[in-house]
Amino acid sequence: MAGFDTKQIWKVFFILLAITVLEFLIALTPALEGLRTDYKLAVNLTYVVLTLFKAFYIIAYFMHLKFEKINLVYSIALPPVFVIYCIVLVLYEGGYWNGIRKENVTSNQKIEQVENHAPEHH
């Protein structure tokens, strides 16, 4: 059956491994510390893109989707479009909540206040 040969499988494994190692390098290399703090968004987007690559390899090769009939490919690959839409909207919404929270932080929400009025904690 197409797409299943041991060589291919190991090749995909090494690609996955390589991407993961790359992610670790970005996350841990001390030299990149400045990059990670200054360009947080860009670094995070890089992670996401690399993750999507990994997802692609898992779905396409391990789950064999690349070699299925095109109908099946579409019916699996298209519904996640809703997910993307949903993610964009809900994250946007999360950012909006963040703005409201920032606006409403009270001046004495800091330590003393909390300490004096600590509620019972579960």
């Binding site: 519904p79 997910v83 949903c86 993610i87 999360g94 950012g95 932080v105």
Partner: peptide, 29 residues
């Protein structure tokens, strides 16, 4: 087919959980 569509469905379950994570993290101070 049923397995594939079940996985699609399960993907939406995880998506919803991760969405919750994303929204709450974005909103957190």
């Amino acid at each position: 087919l049923m397995m594939w569509f079940f996985l699609l469905s399960d993907a939406f379950t995880f998506t919803a959980l991760l969405l919750g994570y994303g929204a709450l993290r974005f909103s957190a101070l």
